[in-house]
């Protein structure tokens, strides 16, 4: 019950979806399965919110250090949830004004929109903007040319960083548009920083990435098969679970 049924569910679902690539009859079944999948994904957001709630409440009830911040999180959570679900400040759909609840929950000037626009947006954008500072500090402290590999990495990074800005024109824009050896087809200007960074991306980075992709594809395929065949059951957790 605790392990066999989940194994069956995952195997049947997985093989039906694999079958959609080969058996036309399975295509419709696959689409139905995907619509259920999407619904579960939506409920996963609710599960996430529920988990956050549970953790913060535990923190508050145990009066752990910083429990005040947990309370702030909870207040922000409940306010946002309420104004979003109750569509506070939202006008009805213009086509159906007699249906008070027909308006768009994220309508401009609604309270939920205000929270998104003026609280969520600046906070999330600034959190990520901090990374620019940390990457500069890391560049100063961590990127050392310790060996050949690290040196290659650094030189390439510098070429691309220069080649993707106007610095490439300042530094190497003067490379003449003349052939290097006779009519070889290669010009000096082919090696200015902008062109050089494009050559690196196309002829060196792409094959490296392609090999990584092929490796990942094989890894994903084998992991998926292991899950569907019940060889890998780690997602079921332990038997001791309540």
């Amino acid at each position: 019950m605790k392990r066999t049924i989940p194994l069956l569910i995952s195997a049947i679902t997985g093989f039906v979806l694999i079958g959609t690539a080969f058996i036309p009859l399975f295509v419709d079944w696959g689409n139905i399965a995907m619509s259920w999948f999407n619904l579960l994904a939506a409920f996963a957001f609710i599960l996430g919110g529920g988990n956050l709630l549970k953790m913060q409440l535990q923190k508050i009830s145990a009066q752990q250090p910083g429990w005040g911040y947990a309370a702030v999180t909870l207040i922000a959570f409940f306010i946002t949830l309420f104004v979003g679900l109750a569509k506070v400040g939202v006008h009805p759909n213009v086509k159906f004004p007699e249906f008070a609840w027909s308006g768009d929950y994220l309508q401009e000037d609604g309270v939920f929109w205000w929270l998104f626009e003026y609280i969520f947006t600046p906070l999330s954008a600034t959190m990520f903007a901090l990374l620019a500072f940390y990457i500069s500090s890391a560049a100063f402290r961590a990127f050392r040319a310790k060996n050949t590999e690290a040196t290659i990495l650094l030189i390439i990074a510098v070429i691309i960083l220069l080649g993707r800005t106007y610095a490439s024109v300042w530094l190497t824009g003067w490379f003449p548009d003349e052939f290097i050896i006779g009519e070889s087809g290669i010009k000096y200007s082919d090696f200015n920083l902008q062109n050089l960074s494009e050559i690196i991306m196309e002829d060196f980075t792409t094959p490296g990435m392609r090999a990584i992709k092929i490796g990942i594809a094989l890894g994903v395929a084998s992991t998926s098969l292991k899950v569907l065949l019940g060889v890998d059951r780690s997602y079921l957790g332990s038997d001791q679970e309540a």
């Binding site: 560049a139 100063f140 990127f143 510098v158 960083l161 610095a167």
Partner: peptide, 14 residues
């Protein structure tokens, strides 16, 4: 400017 700064930082670090 930021790329040039970063390259200078990598250089100084080294």
């Amino acid at each position: 400017v930021a790329h040039l700064l970063l390259i200078s930082l990598i250089f100084l670090g080294n």
